[in-house]
Design a protein around this nucleic acid. Structure first.
Lengths: 184, 184
DNA sequence: TGTGTACTCTTTAGCATTGAAATTTATCTT
DNA sequence: AAGATAAATTTCAATGCTAAAGAGTACACA
């Protein structure tokens, strides 16, 4: 899991960091750098916060990711290990071990698919679903607090802008030189 | 390092995901969820892109992080291992090993501080600085492409909004229940 | 029916990370 | 000056990840 550790301290402020970049690299567009750096820092801080919350519930951030994927798949909350692995960006091997741990903790069950015995079905237990719900409640409180300074209009604009950026990275692939070129 | 792996595939669209969340969790504010999910996805995609670029230069994303921290510290590009560790959010132990590798590759040097022999000084080599510069050039091209759909005004608004969110997480600490409360 | 091929999951070996203990050097107290 | 305490780094054992090899099952096609 990415950058979930706590205490990010003695870090320069965003402004100091951008000033330092400009000193060392003249071609830098400070506006672009501000967006990119803020994005990355924000994400790191948020992951730390989520990590603290899930830890308080006795699960790891990694386990929460699995619970989320299963719930999002909809009732009856079943997925195969390789689907889960693709969804979370893990190798199937890592998924095997992660599921091992979660079965031992009673968050999911693992059984063979009787109609195709190559396949394995991972299914959320009621306990797993309950954990997800508790984590979800904490997460929404945190997220609402995070955004409390933004008016509904500002939220709309922000969501719109981020979605546009996301579409750009998702529908484009960097070429050999790293340039983003449209696929459609 | 966080979520730097490639191929994030067979993922539901952002819209599908939010619809699924609303089905499973009625209290969800779709506007908030849109922002938070887009942020997290965007960051993941960007890390994948950066990873591809640094890999093309023969360094890992982890090594790039160290190079960035050293350059940002300004000439003469020296830092102690524990400062680097704090800056990158790693344990000192991990820093020791990472520096080992980078010394072996000639990106940095490690020597004892003669004025206080407990301390160690990690210093960027000219080769390390050159690698940073190459990575920086690729990164700025990617970042400019990423933001190409946003007008200068939109960029300003976006940067401003993200900075505001960042200030909120940085100056606030979640309490036992996970609420963000101001420190100032 | 039998064999080849493809697919899914697990096992194995290697690597980066963490947390805790150990090591080395500096500083404080008397 | 001696001994205790503190600080910075490294060493060590355990964890979770990746990549690649292995095992088991289903399906196609002769």
């Amino acid at each position: 899991m990415a950058d979930t550790r706590g205490a990010i301290s003695s870090e320069p402020t965003l402004e100091e960091q951008i000033a330092a970049y400009q000193r060392e690299f003249q071609d830098l567009d400070p506006q672009v750098e501000k967006i990119v750096s803020a994005l990355s820092r924000l994400n790191r801080r948020m992951n730390v916060a989520y990590g603290r919350q899930t830890a308080a519930l006795g699960i790891s951030n990694a386990e929460w990711e699995v619970l989320k994927a299963l719930v999002l798949s909809g009732a009856p909350y079943r997925m195969g290990p390789s689907d889960l692995a693709k969804r979370l960006g893990l190798t199937p091997a890592a998924m095997t071990h992660r599921i091992d741990r979660m079965v031992a903790e009673g968050l999911v069950t693992r059984e063979r698919d009787e109609s195709n015995r190559v396949r394995v079905i991972v299914e959320l237990t009621p306990e797993g679903r309950e954990k997800w719900l508790e984590a979800m409640r904490l997460a929404t409180v945190f997220e609402e607090d995070l955004l409390q300074d933004l008016s509904p209009e500002e939220r709309t604009v922000l969501g719109e802008a981020l979605t546009r950026l996301l579409r750009r990275v998702e529908h484009a692939q960097p070429d050999a030189g790293g340039r983003l070129t449209d696929l459609d």
